[in-house]
């Protein structure tokens, strides 16, 4: 596990509360793996959200955006 910057902690805590810790991956290696596509590597993501159904997906996104996720960051599918 890795330490997250304080303002990120806030949003992550809100999402965790909404969807449960099991749906979130914050392990450094997994975050790095999920920050690349077949051609490029991008900036490392804060967490990987693995919803198991539509409602959890909606809950997680609502929590992330309502917690004032910094607008320069955002959500990538």
């Amino acid at each position: 596990m890795e330490i997250l910057a304080p303002q990120d902690d806030l949003a992550l805590a809100a999402i965790t509360e909404a969807v449960g810790a099991e749906a979130l991956i914050t392990d450094a290696a997994e975050r790095a793996y999920h920050s690349q596509d077949v051609f490029s590597t991008g900036p490392t993501v804060l967490a990987v959200f693995r919803p198991t159904d539509k409602d959890m997906l909606a809950r997680g996104i609502a929590a992330a955006t309502q917690a004032g996720w910094p607008s320069s960051r955002g959500v990538a599918a």
């Binding site: 920050s35 596509d37 590597t41 900036p43 804060l46 959200f49 919803p51 992330a64 599918a77």
Partner: peptide, 23 residues
Amino acid sequence: MSYTSGYLAPEAGALLIDTGSMN
């Protein structure tokens, strides 16, 4: 499986949604 930076965030700290468990 893509290669046009479709899900690569412009800055560090984004939340990535992996739909793999919604299958």
